[in-house]
Amino acid sequence: MSTTLLTVAPSPHIHQELTVPQIMRGVIYAMLPALALSVYVFGIGAVNVTVIAIVSCAFFEYLICTYLLKTKSSVADGSAIITGMLLAFNVPSNLPWYIVVIGSAVAIGIGKMSFGGLGNNPFNPALVGRVFLLISFPVQMTSWPEPVASWSIDGATGATPLGLLKDGLRVGDTVPAIMNEMPSNVDFLLGFQGGSLGEMSGVALILGLIYMLYRKIITWHIPISMVVTIFILTGLFWLINPEKYADPVFHILTGGVLLGAIFMATDYVTSPFTHKGMLIFGVGIGIITVLIRLFGAYPEGVSFAILIMNAFVPLINRYTKPRRFGNKPVTNG
């Protein structure tokens, strides 16, 4: 009789290496370039907001797990940290600390744990927190510091390019006239636009996308379908009336499109299962975003679009079930 007991378990006896904590860590790594640039641009404010958001998200998750649900704390899987980071990415860098804490409490408490924790929430928790803040603290949430590379604490505040566009259109300016006063698309791509922490630089976000695709954490379906939809729709309107509608590249590079497409819409829990479902999901987000931006009251609509489509995920899953092997549909011969 050997001293060590043999292990017996049902097959399979091997497992692929990418586990949930590793995936969460991968997402965090993917967010780092954008965070770094943000710190460079917005200075100490960005650091403050991010740290407060992460710490308070983790803290609330720990509290709720330990004292309310009485289960093992799930902070270690890293999902609360991602929620915190995403929440920080979605708010201005000069947001007062208590608002950040309130946002974290809502994101974790209402957005995630009230449904039963990781894997059970229908809506993206960070976006729940963000939208809650946007409605509760509209002034603080829409006054963004100017993107000047400085570590000075009291920078001037201003509006986002999308906000400027909306305001300009409201007072009757034409798009080219407004555009003249704004930086070029190349600047937007590199990251010098006013706005929330994480949505300033297209390049940094795309770097994150490439990393996540390489690690096979996400697939291309959601980001590409969403961005392409926005490009096509805004492009159509732009072709129809360039005086009234901005060009598609402007729409993609400004606001939260890239951040939303790469980090928010691709959240496993709140996106459809199958690739087909993911494409429908991305297209839906794109359409709603464009509708809000062009015809809605808010200058920006990515958060709302994602939350609305989150609600449709169960329905999408229901209608995009995989085809069973051996049940060929008639159309496929």
């Binding site: 043999l6 292990t7 017996v8 378990a9 049902p10």
Partner: peptide
Amino acid sequence: KQFSEYDGA
């Protein structure tokens, strides 16, 4: 006497 260790669900 224990002979092996079960490790499934």
